[in-house]
Nucleic acid binder design. Structure first.
Lengths: 118, 118
DNA sequence: CAAACATATGAGCAATCGTTCATATGTAAT
DNA sequence: ATTACATATGAACGATTGCTCATATGTTTG
């Protein structure tokens, strides 16, 4: 018996490369920010909303009918998009019209679709 | 009493626009695919892995040391990236080296970083 | 073949997410 | 003011996610 335990869990294979990459690595919070940006794009409902708003400014009601979902669900997701600064809103009477915040959003959408359509 | 219930939940405001957008809408599964693509990019660990692999081919051990995580956690995430066809792997002796699957992945990363760095 | 190591994978658990439901806020019309 | 409608929001619930731990697979070396 007296089975010797394993010495360590892990050992670098390419030490120099790992060190080089570590130095070049962007600040941790930058990459976290990036992941969070993609997280907003990572839901089916939100993608549909963004795609639709890229086509036309619309209010919550319109979007609910378009996607065949409750206004509440739409409103919750629009809030996520708003907080991520991907959409902006303006009030007109009782309705609040949403549209894309800037062309950056449009670009990201198109590039993604390009990859999907391959 | 006898409070009359509300007639309906929702009414289209801009009927023509909604119809127009509905017709132009990409197939549902296309947008789902797109959301799923972004979902892979939406995690901090996976973003770090992708960024690192864009710099250099590396094995699980290297990546575990670089990100200061267990090999198991890294391996699980590499599996996600592999299934999404964002990375490829090749065996060399005991080690398995990972690298980005194609330049598309690189492009998406760079565009995202551009947006974050604004 | 056995021991050591690199990687993969299944189960389990806490945390996060997206929807629903109930309710609140804000605007317009009577 | 009261009613009707558009939107926002908090709580709650089920589903999904990312990690850990234990274990399995595959490769090299003695």
């Amino acid at each position: 018996m007296d089975k010797r335990p394993k010495a360590r869990d892990c050992e670098v294979i390419q030490l120099e490369i790992v060190n080089k990459v570590r130095i070049q690595m962007p600040a941790k919070h930058k990459l976290k920010q990036l992941a969070n940006l993609y997280k907003v794009f990572s839901d089916h409902t939100r993608i549909q909303l963004l795609w639709a708003l890229e086509r036309n400014e619309m209010c919550v009601c319109d979007l609910a009918v378009l996607l065949n979902m409750t206004k509440s669900a739409i409103s919750h997701q629009l809030k996520v998009l708003r907080l991520a600064k991907l959409v902006i809103s303006r009030r007109k009477g009782k309705n609040i019209y949403y549209s894309l915040a800037d062309d950056h959003v449009k670009d990201i959408l198109w590039q993604g679709l390009g990859h999907v359509n391959e």
